[in-house]
């Protein structure tokens, strides 16, 4: 494979089994800095398991997982990996429902995470400006004092994307960002992610094909825990194996 040192994310031959079920089977993925990769694939292809491995939730049985060309992610736990600069948006929007939109973003904002620094943290004007800017971007300014529980499904998705932005990560893992969004919201999300990908690496998992087309980027199709096809969306969707296992005839 290519030279590891130039990569943002490097997975080589990653395998993991749960109770005999091989969720990932020699998966190899490379993502370069400031590049977006869209991943498609049928349910059970291992898309979420892949994200679990990158973010330290699951340990691989075998294979190499490197971040930024040098950091071995298989040795670190979730918090350490998050602090390296990997942000994750979950498939099911996971926000802190009993806290306000503003507090959710404040929790995500990139700041020292240790106990004492958090206890004595006081938000300054630049932090406030940053959160206001993010609220504008994800269009939640009017709802900043509402509980996250009161948001619509699509708004929760946006809030979680806003939390990702506040974390200021180098690599974003975005799992099904447009589920439950209206068409116009979907278009906006594609614009936003493309904008983010100009400076950061982004991995998007999505089923919505028109959204993937809007992203206009390299596409990878996973099936049964390994890469089935890779290339532009047109190349991938013309691949007979992809049609067989995912798109359907």
């Amino acid at each position: 494979m290519a030279d590891k040192t130039d990569t943002m994310l490097y997975l080589d031959g990653v395998s993991v089994s749960f109770d005999g079920f091989r969720a990932l089977n020699g998966l190899s993925i490379i993502v370069y800095p400031a590049e977006m990769l869209a991943i498609i694939g049928p349910n059970g292809a291992g898309k979420t398991t892949m994200m679990d491995i990158i973010t330290g939730k699951t340990r691989p049985d075998d294979g190499e997982v490197l971040f930024d060309g040098r950091t071995d992610l298989t040795q670190l736990d979730e918090a350490a990996i998050a602090n390296l600069g990997i942000g994750r948006k979950f498939q099911k929007p996971t926000v802190f429902e009993n806290q306000t939109v503003w507090d959710n973003l404040e929790l995500a904002l990139k700041k020292p995470r240790n106990v004492l620094a958090t206890l004595f943290y006081a938000m300054d004007a630049s932090d406030r400006a940053r959160l206001d800017e993010i609220l504008e971007t994800v269009r939640l300014t009017a709802r900043k004092n509402d509980l996250a529980a009161d948001l619509s499904h699509g708004q929760k998705q946006w809030l979680e994307i806003g939390m990702l932005l506040a974390q200021d990560p180098k690599l974003l893992l975005v799992d099904e960002p447009v589920a439950g969004m209206t068409d116009s919201e979907t278009v906006e999300t594609a614009k936003l992610l493309k904008d983010i990908a100009r400076t950061r690496s982004v991995v998007v998992v999505e089923h919505d094909m028109s959204f993937v087309r809007d992203l206009d980027t390299r596409v990878m199709c996973l099936a049964e825990g390994s890469v089935l096809a890779e290339g532009s969306l047109d190349q991938v969707s013309a691949n007979p194996k992809v049609i067989e296992s995912y798109l359907g005839r």
Partner: peptide, 30 residues
């Protein structure tokens, strides 16, 4: 404090808090 918000976050969604980079075990220990 912000730590109080982190505590509530741990109470409501512990694993999510970890993925934000907080050391849940130390917050609980405190």
């Amino acid at each position: 404090s912000k730590l109080g918000k982190v505590m509530a976050a741990i109470r409501d969604a512990e694993s999510r808090t970890r993925f934000l980079g907080y050391r849940v075990e130390y917050v609980k220990l405190f």
